[in-house]
Simulated assay, not measured.
Amino acid sequence: MASILVLGGTAWLGREIATQGVAAGHDVTCVARGLSGDAAPGTRFVQADRAVPGALEKIAAREWDHVIELAWDPPVVSTTLDVLADRAAHWTLVSSISVYDGDTGPGADELQPLLAPDSDGDYGTQKSHAETLSAAALGERLLTVRPGLIVGRGDSSDRFGYWPARFALAAVDGRPVLAPPTADAWVQCIEAVDLAAFTLHAATDARTGPVDATGLPVLLAEVLDACATAAGFDGERRTADADWLVEHDVQYWAGPRSLPLWLPAEMTGFAQRDTARFRSWGGATRPLAETAARVLADELERGLERERRSGLTRADELALLNASP
């Protein structure tokens, strides 16, 4: 049994890591504000806002076999390292493939250069800064897990979940589904449960260094097919031209008024990363059809017509379909 400190542990991925840690027989403590949900059963929960000085005093004197950090805010990462870096035999930082600088094409791996660290920049530059801070404080005790697109039950981004939900709605109303161009478009994803399992396994195996943690590249067309099949949709899927979509203010990838998972044609490498290290370290992802079915079940529970962070509203989609050539 190992002592594991999860810095987070009440929200999506962190809670799954904590849950699996308890199931594996480890002594798991979670430190979080407690605003994102309840701690996993069987864990010790320490309520703390790490942005407040002295927030970690309750655990500052304890030694840990493994610390797992999920934060991306450099000041929070830095102050936590100041207090706990010398108390951990091994440390895992959950980072992101968004730290990589530019698109070097298909097959890029962990050796690709990173974005310049910036504590006031966007998500990628702040994650890069968190990596720099962690490496300086921990040296060879650091494992850096860089996930790709994380999907699955509880995903609040709505990027993957939009598609099985939209096909399920269309299966009921009998109207077409608007789709982006899929020729040579790729997706790489990993379910949160699989990412949690890998993170916990790699941490307790004391792996060190960076690793891109995501699935094998899959054509976007195959993702849409799997989501349509899961939803029982066999109606019309109307594919729009990329220029037409952009002209009609439809966004790439995520966010309001987007067609999620769709990327600009020039981003050839973002979803075609090499995952040899991940797989050689025991990483695995479940079949796409299983993921699509599991995500659909979650979407049905949460409500197909709920307000979403990503995607088109059904009304906007139907208006675009009516305007499409």
Rank of each mutant, 00 (worst) to 15 (best):
L261M: 06
T79F: 10
T229K: 09
A71M: 11
Q272S: 07
A88D: 11
Q47A: 05
D298E: 07
A40W: 11
T125W: 00
V177H: 00
E317V: 13
T79N: 15
P287A: 07
S128F: 01
A71V: 11
T80C: 13
A88S: 15
T313G: 02
E307R: 15
M1D: 13
G14H: 05
R273E: 02
R279T: 15
W72L: 03
D120G: 01
G255P: 06
P210A: 10
P41D: 06
R50S: 07
V83G: 08
L70F: 14
G105L: 05
A165N: 03
H66E: 12
L149F: 01
D65A: 01
P113S: 07
G139F: 08
D103Q: 07
G152S: 09
V246W: 03
L84I: 11
L216V: 15
A61H: 15
P147L: 08
L320G: 14
P264V: 04
A323I: 01
P147D: 05
V67S: 10
W186I: 15
M267C: 08
G283W: 06
P264T: 05
A183W: 00
G235E: 03
P74D: 00
A226P: 00
A293Y: 13
G105D: 09
Q112A: 10
Y100N: 13
A196M: 06
W262P: 00
H26G: 13
A206V: 13
C189W: 12
P325W: 11
D103H: 09
L133W: 09
A230Q: 06
R33D: 05
T275W: 09
A289K: 13
L320D: 09
Y162H: 14
A297K: 10
R159A: 07
I59M: 13
A24L: 15
H129T: 01
A51V: 09
R238L: 09
V46W: 04
R62T: 14
S96F: 02
A242E: 12
A254K: 14
E110H: 02
